[in-house]
Write a protein that binds this DNA or RNA. Structure first.
Lengths: 210, 210
DNA sequence: ATACGGTTTAACTAATTGGTTAAATATAAT
DNA sequence: ATTATATTTAACCAATTAGTTAAACCGTAT
């Protein structure tokens, strides 16, 4: 435990990530973070000064790691259907790989709206909306606004992870394997659900068997 | 303020509802609840003994008020399409009328899973799944499981309310009127989105103009 | 008038927590 | 060997908070 200073700061950051993502800024305690990192409170102070600065570091790390790629997918020069399938797949993957990411994002949006939006604005959301609207106009798609479409896509991807404890209880009977399979399959079913709704004929929709 | 004992208990419960829904059990303080109710801490103790019992009262009040009706809609003896439209409309209505309901439900599912599920089980969710599955089997609908369908419906209804602060910022430019109109319209657009995805031909789907 | 339930006041305790510090100790680089 | 850096220990303060209590006060119904 002693003097492995190369990764101690990183270990603290990881511990903070874990605790902040599960409990949120206010409920999380510096003591728990220190315990999980295997250091003491004084060292948190040594590296990050205080709780708020530590939380900010966690926040920026998460935002910069997970969000930009997703916007990139939706503005790529490809048919809309391909973009939608890629986005859904990538988003469900990233949320699967980080159990508490959905919870964290929602918590930050609600409790720290200003700061979250400042970061989010760097991704130029209006430009995204404009580009998607343009695609909807060009392609032969039933009437829907880009905002509604994006909101629907986000809803279908993120919400199931938010209520995962409930699904675990009712549907998966607390078997992690069932949960994993469910979310794996959803990459397909959610894409199909969206595409099927957008195009007049069931064009290209892949149906799959149980 | 004095001796209106008829509704003081109710006032405290309303104040507690408001604070607990926004901040969650742990971040909420009894002092703030007392302030909003226009009474002092000692009176909370007089009526509800302690914070936990007060929170429980709020929880049960909310669950019993808002949830049962929604399950009732989905198991009514009607064509599935009508049930879906009624469910979406009713759910968006109830979430619109109670700004912090979505946030509260999500918070409880995540932080108090056991207790939430105990209450939820009273609504016989497996029966709901069975009935919806049966409807999907009987009617001429593309392949989708009842679980996926219900998860999708819930996602499309609830998630936009959870990220409303974000939408307010990017889309509505903090104009409450725009937000209201958006969610009003979504009763239609979400229903259409789902129905359109379920049925092979665009049967009965109402298209609407800007 | 009195007795009772509702309400306030004011004070207190115990526990938790974030933040801070000083000193000691360990390690690696020079 | 010396120095700079990393880390621990241990103690402390100030603030917040849930919970509790005793006494007084108010209003109303009997």
């Amino acid at each position: 435990m002693i003097n492995n200073n190369i990764n101690t700061e990183q270990r603290i950051l990881e511990a903070a990530k874990q605790v902040f993502m599960q409990k949120g800024m206010k409920v999380a305690t510096t003591q728990e973070i220190a315990d999980i990192a295997g250091v003491n409170k004084a060292l948190l102070h040594y590296y990050f000064r205080n709780k708020e600065k530590l939380h900010l570091a966690v926040f920026q790390d998460i935002i910069k790691t997970y969000l930009p790629n997703l916007v990139g997918i939706m503005i790529a020069r490809q048919p809309l259907e391909q973009r939608i399938r890629a986005f859904v797949s990538a988003y469900i993957d990233v949320l699967s790989a980080n159990s508490y990411l959905a919870q964290f994002l929602v918590h930050e949006i609600q409790q720290n709206t200003e700061r979250f939006m400042q970061q989010f604005m760097h991704l130029a959301p209006e430009r995204l909306i404009r580009i998607v609207n343009h695609s909807l106009y060009k392609e032969n798609i039933r009437h829907i606004t880009a905002v509604d479409l994006m909101v629907n896509m986000l809803s279908l991807c993120v919400f199931p992870f938010i209520v995962k404890p409930m699904l675990n209880h009712i549907i998966f009977k607390d078997e992690e394997l069932m949960s994993e399979r469910f979310f794996l399959q959803r990459k397909q079913t959610v894409s199909d659900f969206i595409i099927n709704s957008l195009y007049y004929e069931n064009h290209k929709t892949i149906r799959h068997t149980c």
